[in-house]
Amino acid sequence: MFVLTTVSDTVKVEPTHFRKDPIDAIKDEINRKFANRVIHQVGLCISAFDILETSDGLIYHSDGGLNYETTFRLVVFRPFIGEVLVGKIRSSSEKGIKVSLHFMDDIIIPPSCLPENSEFDTQEQVWVWKYDGNDLFMDPGEIIRFRVVEELFIEAAPEAPRKEAADVTPITLPLSKEKSELKIQPSPYSLTCSIQEDGLGLLAWWGS
């Protein structure tokens, strides 16, 4: 689920950080730029891992900062298709169940990927799996095991106003690619998952 990604980039260290060890200063700058950001088609960056090589710091005209040509590795969250993850149910709606891994919230299990005979209880706002005459509720906060079936990267257009984007519910599903690309998608990286298999679903169901 976590991979190391090698990236090369110019890293600028401002004069205020010159008292630090250069490697630490470069690492801090990399973290400032990449931590908690999604790189298109790569994944969600967690943190800098190590620095493979770096040039001498160059100073440009009329600027005091040191510029390093650096090759470094990042810890990136990028589960592969088919990977099984364990998370917590965040919320449910008719469009499916949203799951959170704390650091990654754009995970959705659409109704088509729930176990057969699942129904949405509009009163309780939860999905119920009707199994063998038993009602198995998928309440928020429950721990759930699921399989990644699809990933979707959306390159954020720079002109899209941030405020509007935040108003759109991120639950829009990547059912058809063209359709979802037309809409404003606030999430640059989202996962569609399934629990339609023995062993998947709430941990409590399978008794561990």
Binding site: T5, T6, V7, V75
Partner: peptide, 19 residues
């Protein structure tokens, strides 16, 4: 910025936790 290698070695959860 240039992605030199998008998928390098895999890290286990424990390694990320330790880091």
């Amino acid at each position: 910025m240039k992605i030199e290698k998008a998928f390098g070695p895999l890290l286990s959860n424990y390694e990320v936790l330790a880091l």
